[in-house]
Design a protein around this nucleic acid. Sequence first.
DNA 1: CGTGGGCCTGTCTA
DNA 2: ATAGACAGGCCCA
Length: 286
Amino acid sequence: MRLDVAFDLGFTLCCGQVFRWKKIGGWWYGVVGESVFKVRQCGSELEFVNVDEVFVRHYFGLNDDLEEISSCINKDDYIGKALRKFAGLRIVRQNPWECLISFICATYKSIAAIEQMLQRLSVKFGEKMMFDGLDFYRFPSVERLALASESGLRECGLGYRAKYVQVTAQKICHEKINLEGLKELSYLEARKVLLGFAGVGLKVADCVLLFSLEKLEAFPVDVWVKRAILNHYAEKFPADLVKKMQRHDSLTNGEYLKISEFARAYFGKYAGYAQEYLYHYERTQR
DNA sequence: CGTGGGCCTGTCTA
DNA sequence: ATAGACAGGCCCA
């Protein structure tokens, strides 16, 4: 298909939002929902196999008006540079369940380790599929993980996260919680529900809200975004707060809320997009 | 309400 | 090689 909007597949899939896409022989392979598809980009030409255009447009956020979003969040030179460097980066619309479990697993782990955990989880508890002569695994269902033992989950390398995944899966299963339905709630209402799950704090909740529940105002603050804010937006905060935040690596809930609420006020309703650009820019600055 | 300490384990670096 | 630091935080006291 011929792209009529700015899009960069590599930026969008690399590092951070999604963990199960793999580049093999020039194609990106992904398991989304029940099936596998592959996609590659050459300039403004986007090719995909085993999936239709409607899904591709939705999944890769091609329906977001990125021009409007960019001009909306382009508040200063620093984010301006990030917007130019990663032009075409978009926010993916993931499955909320997979996204929730992914970010529960993501705490205190490097991206390589997160990919490893989710792969092992899918191999052990998901269904196998063949595509292009390669093996792929569906992400395990809610029901399957609700039945998993803590030790079985630990075998996938989850460590202390095993209990969180088990308890969260059981809660969603037994209480028949409809995660997709959270899209209909406001940002704050949906966040409140997510914070009720084991292993979900403000950071994990914001990732799920942004990457799977279409809450583009969510502004996840991880160590990289914290660094970006302290290095380039420190003058927006009281000096004593900046000093306090520099002393510790992680954030208290209070500090987290101060940063993310500043970001929503400053960047506006698309603060989540600003977060993605700042995150990638900060990570590549060293 | 704010704060400090502990936590599983895979990667990466020295 | 092998240890040690660090990793997209959360929970509990």
